[in-house]
Amino acid sequence: MLNTSLNKSLRMMFALVALIIGLGLVMPTAHAADDQSSQQQATTRTSDADLWRAVKAGESGYSTDKALEANVLINKAGNEGKEIRNTYLKPAIVLAVFGVFGAFLLFFLVNGPSKLSHGFSGKMVLRWTSADVWLHWIMAIACLILMLTGIFIMLGRHFIAPYVGEGLWAGIISASKFIHDWSGPVFIVSWLICVIKWMPLQLFKLYDLKWFLVVGGYINFGPFKGKHPDSGFANAGEKMWFWTLVIFGLFISITGLMLVLPNLDLPREASIAALLVHGISAVILIAFTIVHIWMATVLSEGGMECMVSGYCDENWAIQHHNLWYDEIKENGSLKYKS
């Protein structure tokens, strides 16, 4: 009986020791497994963070798509270009339109127009041929259409979209894009012909410096009043406008073609650069166009007639382009309107 109890007690003791030893072996293993799982999760989180950081930085990965830049999920240049456009270009367009227009309106209200010192003579002198007049207006209308539709495309969602329905806004922006794209070739062709045809008349001369010094004779007060500087066929202001149109017209033409031609498979960086150069060139041309229109119409009495009929009043020619008038009178090419 005693042996039976002793054996039972020994078995229970051995079972308890085995249980304790087993628990001792299992718990470190389980703890190690938990540590390993935690490390794997941390590594996964770090790996995901690194991956997302690389994606946002524009780093290249691997894709089965073989298109240009298909391996880049997020193009960094695109985001940076968008930021530059929204931060700088859009305010610059607003300043070019309202700032320049407002400045000339204020100047006109204070100074008034530049009137003809001896009034209109009634004699009309040929200044531009019919071909020149047509060429000017084709380019001018195309340019104005491009500017207006470009402003709609860039700024329309800020000052048009909030006040019209979604359907109407979709129609406006779609029409603006269509008209903008198809007015471009008209502008490019007419611009190129104008540059080739008129460039010999737009070369700067030494006497043009005086034109700038006396502000072209347009100021009607102070020491500048009544000052009419020498000028050839084109005055210094017209020459500055012409060369601005040449340089930035070239930029806007090239970048415009880069942006609309479907077969040009350009890198994203090139497209963004073209978009920014296009916008900067547009801002400059918009500002100079407003100046050109003010100078040719409101500020210069009798100036608009030149590009309506091709003729200018003889007194206008003597006052604003005296060297040209003297030249055509001397060489016998002076022609009056019959």
Results as ranks from 00 to 15, higher is better:
residue 83 E to R: 13
residue 228 H to T: 15
residue 213 L to F: 15
residue 84 I to E: 04
residue 280 I to E: 02
residue 2 L to C: 00
residue 200 P to A: 05
residue 14 F to K: 05
residue 144 L to H: 11
residue 254 I to D: 05
residue 13 M to A: 13
residue 105 L to P: 08
residue 17 V to A: 12
residue 46 T to K: 10
residue 66 K to P: 02
residue 253 S to F: 00
residue 304 M to S: 13
residue 150 G to H: 12
residue 30 A to N: 02
residue 226 G to F: 08
residue 95 L to F: 15
residue 269 E to K: 03
residue 123 K to Y: 10
residue 96 A to M: 09
residue 26 V to L: 04
residue 40 Q to C: 04
residue 249 G to P: 01
residue 319 Q to D: 09
residue 264 L to W: 08
residue 317 A to E: 06
residue 220 N to R: 07
residue 103 A to D: 11
residue 288 F to Y: 10
residue 172 I to Q: 08
residue 212 F to A: 00
residue 298 V to F: 11
residue 5 S to V: 11
residue 170 A to I: 10
residue 124 M to T: 00
residue 56 K to F: 15
residue 51 L to Y: 12
residue 316 W to T: 05
residue 30 A to C: 05
residue 313 D to E: 15
residue 287 A to H: 12
residue 207 Y to F: 14
residue 90 K to M: 09
residue 270 A to M: 15
residue 293 I to V: 15
residue 219 I to F: 13
residue 12 M to P: 07
residue 155 L to D: 15
residue 187 F to G: 01
residue 8 K to R: 14
residue 62 Y to Q: 03
residue 179 I to V: 08
residue 144 L to S: 13
residue 319 Q to N: 10
residue 307 M to N: 11
residue 324 W to F: 07
residue 34 D to H: 04
residue 280 I to K: 00
residue 57 A to V: 08
residue 184 G to V: 01
residue 1 M to Y: 06
residue 297 T to K: 00
residue 15 A to R: 13
residue 306 C to R: 14
residue 180 H to A: 07
residue 14 F to M: 09
residue 217 G to A: 10
residue 159 F to W: 15
residue 192 L to H: 02
residue 322 N to S: 15
residue 156 G to S: 12
residue 232 G to H: 03
residue 171 G to Y: 14
residue 5 S to R: 09
residue 80 E to N: 06
residue 207 Y to D: 15
residue 235 N to D: 03
residue 246 V to W: 02
residue 11 R to Y: 05
residue 95 L to Y: 15
residue 198 W to V: 02
residue 286 I to L: 13
residue 69 E to C: 00
residue 106 L to Q: 09
residue 12 M to S: 14
residue 283 V to Y: 07
residue 119 G to M: 05
residue 180 H to S: 06
residue 158 H to L: 11
residue 9 S to M: 13
residue 164 V to L: 10
residue 161 A to S: 12
